[in-house]
Simulated scan of single mutants.
Amino acid sequence: MIEGLRTISEEHKQQFEKEGYLIMKGVFCREEIAEIEETFMEMSKKPIPGCFEPIIDEQSENDDPLKRYPRMMQPHRVNDVAMKYMLHPKVMAILADLYGEEALAAQSMFYFKPPRSRGQALHQDNFYLKVEPGTCIAAWTAVDRADEENGTLLVVPKTNNDDIYCPELADEKESFTKHFVKVPKGLKAVPAILEEGDVLFFNGNLIHGSYRNKSKDRFRRSFICHYAGESTTKIGHYYSPLYRQNGSKVEPETNSDSGPCGNEFDALYPH
C-alpha cells in the first residue's frame, strides 16, 4: 500500500482472485483522461515508425477504419505522457495489492476502435507475454464510455486459473487478430461496462476479447498496459525492459521461443 493513495479492499482482492478481473471506478479524473485523449489523438495525426503505422487516405478508412486507426504499440518508448500514465501511482498501488509485491510495467498500448471497426477474438494475454513465474496483469483504462454498442471488452469469469490454451484461427471478418480461444464448456463471456476513467484489471490467463464497434459515431478508445510482478524471472523478449514505478529499468531473462503451441502460433502482440 502507498500512503494516501487508493488501493483495493479485501473484497476486491477476493473477487479478482475468484473471477480473474476487477473494475475500479473513477481511478482517473476528467482532467487526466483529457490529457490521455489529447496526447494520443495528437500522436495519431502522423505515422510513428514501430509504434503507429496508419494508412492515411479516405478510401482505406472507408474500407477498414482500423487502417487509419490501428492500435498504437509501446507508446511509452516514444512519449513521456504515455510513460507517466503507464507508471501512474494509483495504478501501480492497485497492482501492488493484486500481486502482493511491487509491479513492473511491461507494455503500453492505445486502442482507438473507431465506429464500424472489427473487434478482437477471445484470447489470453500471457500466451504472448510469457511471464514466469505466475502471469501478467492488464490495466485497461476506458478513455470513452465502453459498452456493448461500441465494442467493450468481454471477459470469461473464472478462466484465470486455467492453463494457456492453444488458439484456433479467428474469423478475420470480425477480428483484426488471428488467434481465437474457445469459451470453456459451462462458462460464458460477459461485457465489462466502463465509464471514462474506470480501469479494468484482469489476470493474464483470463480469456477475453471484444466484438465489432456497432455504433455509427462513437470511438471506444482505451489505454492498456500490462504488468508483471517484481518476482518475475522471465518474460517474452518484446516486453523487455520492464519499468519500476520510479522509472528505473529491470531486465529479466527473456525468451523468444514460441511457447506451448508451436511456431505457427508465435506472436508478439496481445490485445
Rank of each mutant, 00 (worst) to 15 (best):
M1I: 07
M1A: 08
G4A: 15
L5D: 01
E10Y: 00
E11K: 15
E11M: 15
Q14W: 14
G20M: 08
V27D: 11
F28M: 13
E35V: 09
E35I: 05
I36T: 00
E37D: 15
T39P: 04
M43T: 04
P47H: 06
I48A: 02
E53R: 00
I55L: 15
D57I: 07
S60V: 07
E61Q: 03
Y69V: 13
M73N: 01
Q74E: 08
Q74V: 07
Q74P: 05
P75N: 03
V78P: 01
V81A: 10
A82S: 06
M86Q: 12
P89A: 03
A93I: 01
I94D: 11
L95K: 00
D97Y: 07
L98D: 04
L104W: 11
F110M: 06
Y111A: 06
F112L: 11
R116N: 15
R118Y: 10
G119M: 01
Q120S: 13
A121K: 05
L122R: 01
H123P: 04
Q124G: 11
D125R: 12
L129F: 13
T135H: 12
I137G: 05
A139C: 03
R145D: 15
E148I: 08
T152R: 08
L154E: 11
L154N: 12
L154P: 05
V155N: 05
V156F: 10
D162R: 04
C166N: 09
C166G: 11
E168I: 02
A170F: 09
D171F: 14
S175Q: 14
F176T: 09
F176S: 09
P184K: 08
K188S: 08
K188E: 09
P191T: 11
A192Q: 15
E196F: 09
G197L: 03
G197H: 02
L206K: 03
S210G: 14
R212W: 03
R212F: 05
K214Q: 11
F219G: 13
R220C: 12
H226W: 06
Y227N: 02
T233I: 10
G236P: 00
Y238T: 01
S240V: 14
S240K: 11
S240Y: 10
L242S: 04
Y243K: 03
R244E: 08
Q245T: 04
G247K: 05
G262D: 05
G262F: 02
A267D: 15
